[in-house]
């Protein structure tokens, strides 16, 4: 599979953006915490960038994604402008969900982003819907549903995979196995070696993918998307990855620091891809660092926009509940 160089550069830009956004969001969280104000829980996607980018870069704007509580990476990879995300994190009226959603509830239906979810596994049954909708309306849109290894232990995973496969719905289930459900390691949660192995039980293909390799994710998802668009039904992909931060900003990290250091040294998705682009002579170091600087400027501009934006007025609190309002 030959990937255009522009696409490869865009992949790096998106991965840089996710890393920079998450890093800056954590800083804002800490600053505000010291001042006694809250930004919710904030679940960092750092370390998992290759999954969202590899999965979303090949999707069309009218393809749907369902995101998770750890969803900033998915939003950025699907094309959301970071300034509206940053404004949402600060609870501003200009936020992508007008300050009603926060970190875990970012939506942009025009970009196919059908939302994060505060309920672990909450998106798994919902994803059947846009997939069914495309099949019902005879379009060839696909739906990508992200979920974690923790969500893979919810009962609705079983119901949903069975129904998706039974009705050959155009949905790609992507398990982001980052090795921990909050603090519980995956080998204490899941009885089989790979979540993808469970696909056999649903009569659909499953595949384990190196989640730190954006090209491996891209290739696997592209094949799954082609399959789904062609009417062959769902696929279960499991991307093995690792999160660099604790589950969220309000839960202490109890993981072995050496384990984290090993993943960062050997499997960092951004370092890995930077080396690839160097080796292939697609981008040299100077170009990469220039791109990274641009990304940081964009994220900083997003912070400026967010901070300058107005908070929602309390008199508007009841808006957006009912369709007729």
């Amino acid at each position: 599979m030959r990937i255009p160089e522009d696409t490869l550069r865009e992949m790096l830009r998106l991965m840089y953006t996710i890393r920079a956004f998450e890093c800056r969001a954590r800083q804002l969280f800490e600053e505000r915490r010291l001042r006694g104000s809250f930004m919710g829980a904030l679940h960092s996607y750092e370390g998992e960038e290759a999954v969202a980018v590899g999965a979303c870069i090949g999707l069309r704007p009218d393809d749907y994604i369902l995101s998770t509580h750890r969803g900033h990476g998915h939003c950025i990879a699907k094309g959301v402008d970071v300034k509206f995300m940053m404004a949402e994190l600060l609870g501003k009226e200009t936020g992508i969900s007008k300050g009603r959603g926060g970190s875990m509830h970012m939506f942009d239906p025009a970009l196919g982003l059908l939302g994060g979810n505060g309920i672990v596994g909450g998106g798994i049954p919902l994803a059947l819907g846009p997939a069914f909708s495309a099949q019902y309306r005879h379009t060839d849109q696909v739906t990508v549903c992200f979920f974690g290894d923790g969500a893979a232990c919810q009962g609705n995973f079983h119901e949903s995979l069975n129904l998706a496969s039974l009705w050959k719905l155009p949905v790609i289930y992507i398990c982001e196995n980052n090795q921990y459900a909050v603090t519980t390691p995956v080998n204490e949660s899941i009885a089989v070696a790979n979540v993808a192995d469970r696909a056999a039980g649903y009569g659909c293909p499953g595949e384990v993918v190196d989640g730190s390799d954006v090209l491996a994710v891209y290739r696997a998802v592209t094949e799954a998307v082609q399959r789904a668009r062609g009417g062959a039904g769902p696929m279960l992909l499991e991307c093995k990855t690792y999160r660099y931060q604790a589950h969220c900003m309000v839960i202490p990290d109890r993981r072995d620091p050496q384990e984290l250091a090993r993943w960062q040294k050997e499997h960092d998705p951004i370092r890995h891809f930077e080396r690839y682009l160097l080796d292939q002579q697609i981008m040299d170091e100077a170009q990469q660092s220039k791109l990274n600087e641009q990304v940081h400027k964009t994220v900083e501009a997003a912070v400026t926009f967010a901070e300058a934006s107005p908070l929602p007025h309390p008199s508007t609190v009841a808006e957006h509940l009912w369709a007729e309002d």
Binding site: Y64, L66, P109, L114, I124, P125, L126, A127, L128, G129, P130, A131, F132, S133, A134, Y136, R137, G155, N156, E159, S160, N162, L163, L166
Partner: peptide
């Protein structure tokens, strides 16, 4: 039967499906 969809006994899945279908215009 494409408009009258008989499901397995999986309420979480088919109610979730319905919510997602409603989100996307059905």
């Amino acid at each position: 039967t494409h408009r009258v969809r008989q499901t397995p006994l999986s309420e979480a899945a088919f109610v979730g499906l319905a919510v997602g279908a409603a989100m996307t215009g059905l």
